[in-house]
């Protein structure tokens, strides 16, 4: 919206301010990421983690029937493999290294997992859109479903690849934040 989005004649600047509390209250992003790594992932022999991955695999199997979704399907399979190796590396670091160091990039883990989940939901939306387009809907719906597929493509091409940067930091137990000293600020 350019400058018009920066002034209070339009509500978007209020939306922006209103949302600023959400990463803080009811448990900050940092706390959520520690909850995920120290409790939710290892809990009950990784039951929740495995159940979640299983849901994603089910969608991947379904998506294989649609040739136009092949690139997304392949990319999500790779992302799932990245998530698995990253999880293994972080859990190993938590068991063998200084726990404060091993958890120091936990937010990046939560972001990585979040991106995989959102990518999964975009693939699910793409399957629905692809099926609906095959039924030759009316023009307004053609636009709607094409928009879904284009947004999914955007997420896969512009956003999902970011997990590779985060995965590298996590698997190598990058110590940049951990090593920083209060006196150095």
């Amino acid at each position: 919206m350019g400058g018009h989005g920066y002034i209070n004649e339009h509500p978007v600047e209020m939306f922006y301010r209103d949302n600023r509390l959400n990463p803080i209250h009811e448990g900050t992003t940092g706390i959520q990421s520690l909850d995920l790594l120290t409790r939710k992932v290892p809990m009950n022999k990784m039951q929740g983690y495995k159940a979640t991955l299983h849901e994603i695999v089910k969608t991947l199997d379904e998506a294989k029937h649609y040739s136009s979704l092949q690139p997304m399907t392949e990319q999500l399979s790779e992302a799932l493999a990245t998530l698995s190796t990253t999880t293994e590396a972080v859990l190993t670091a938590m068991a063998t290294k200084n726990i404060d160091l091993a958890l120091s990039n936990s937010v990046k883990y939560l972001e990585l997992f979040g991106h995989v989940i959102i990518a999964w939901l975009w693939l699910k939306q793409s399957i629905v859109a692809t099926k609906a387009l095959a039924e030759k809907p009316h023009q307004a719906d053609v636009h709607f479903y094409q928009g879904k597929l284009q947004a999914a493509q955007y997420f896969y091409r512009f956003e999902l690849p970011e997990i590779n940067v985060w995965s590298k930091l996590l698997t190598q137990t990058d110590s940049t934040s951990f090593d920083m000293q209060p006196e150095w600020f």
């Binding site: 990463p23 959520q32 990421s33 995920l36 929740g48 939560l110």
Partner: peptide, 12 residues
């Protein structure tokens, strides 16, 4: 399992 992600991803 997903609650931390459901809370955080949309917020961030």
């Amino acid at each position: 399992f997903l609650t931390p992600i459901i809370k955080t991803w949309p917020s961030e």
